[in-house]
Design a binder for these strands. Structure first.
Lengths: 186, 186
DNA sequence: CTGAATTTTCAGTAATTTCTGAAATTATAG
DNA sequence: CTATAATTTCAGAAATTACTGAAAATTCAG
């Protein structure tokens, strides 16, 4: 398969960005290719289009599956595995948030909770433990916020993004009211 | 300087996590140490505490400054440079969001805009260009959302986090009203 | 079952990134 | 200025990560 210049650029760019996103260059390229492709692709097609070894593509696809960023499917009358990305970009964004949280937040949150729970050292070095507590609190809030996002329906989610500017005003005006109208919250 | 076991663990853990966050192990350790330290530290103290070469610490501090995650200051009667982290963890989180956006979103957004602007190829390969357009739109929304966060005052920001669950309901109930009450928005 | 098609594993190599010590640069006290 | 303290730079070494080809494992049609 051959890519036009624009698509080629996008794929290469995505590869470079990949390293900033915690995936490597070739995995980034594979993802970009699948994202742009109207039809699902098999490993050989990817390998050929991007000039990567078949084994590298196999590992890359495994990683993309671990990230839940591609889905495996089969085409009728073809034994090969085919891969594609979700059609809805919002779905993709949600997955990205969830997976990054899992990798970047949860391990630290877990360590902080453990440390703070059985810390007799809390008095001996008050400042540092206070700091860890602050970080823990903040991370818990972000984690809860991420959970909420995942639960929201598509429509509300679009509104959260579109109306970010409005939310600010709403909260400013209505924060107290909101609390009152939700008496089931501690 | 000597760290207690808990602090040691935190610093080492943060080092490991560093690689998932786009900074390397030693830079992660340096940041963790500064974050936990009540008083600003100079490069020699960091170098000694973490067993890193002086030059490595110098480069690491430069990177942390590029991320705006530490601030340089001077102590009276001491020629050395001292470094510390902001006291407010919300400030830190905001900086992190801003800097990651700059590194992870903006370059791709820029490429996408350019590509989509002067794309005569839009017809020849409709699907791929449509895909790029979707990604571009989504990234622009996230970028705007990040801008809004930066502008908010501390109080509203805390509410955004605390009341994430409420926001959902507010938006659901009030989306139309919100739009009407902001006629200056297209 | 058998064997061809397909995917995965993995050891070795290549490429990249990180880290260091020595030298160069910069800053400042006297 | 000069001398010393402090920081930065940078070439090469060390460590890590990515990639490949060959071999092993798996899958499935017949």
């Amino acid at each position: 398969m051959n890519l036009t210049s624009d698509l080629q650029s996008f794929v290469l760019h995505f590869g470079e960005m990949g390293s900033r996103w915690g995936i490597n260059r070739t995995v980034g390229q594979m993802y970009a290719l699948l994202f742009l492709s109207e039809n699902p692709l098999n490993a050989d097609q990817i390998s050929e289009t991007l000039n990567l070894s078949r084994s590298n593509v196999s590992m890359g696809l495994k990683e993309l599956q671990a990230w839940q960023l591609v889905r495996l499917q089969h085409l009728p009358g073809d034994r090969k595995d085919y891969f594609s990305t979700p059609e809805d970009t919002l779905d993709i964004a949600l997955t990205l948030i969830q997976e990054r949280r899992k990798r970047e937040l949860d391990p630290t949150l877990s360590l902080l909770r453990d440390t703070l729970l059985d810390s007799d050292g809390a008095e001996s070095n008050g400042y540092a433990y206070g700091r860890m507590q602050e970080m823990c609190d903040l991370m818990e809030q972000v984690a809860r916020w991420s959970d909420k996002l995942q639960q929201m329906d598509r429509n509300s989610l679009e509104n959260v993004l579109k109306l970010a500017n409005v939310t600010h005003k709403l909260i400013g005006l209505k924060a107290n009211w909101s609390l009152k109208s939700n008496p089931d919250r501690s």
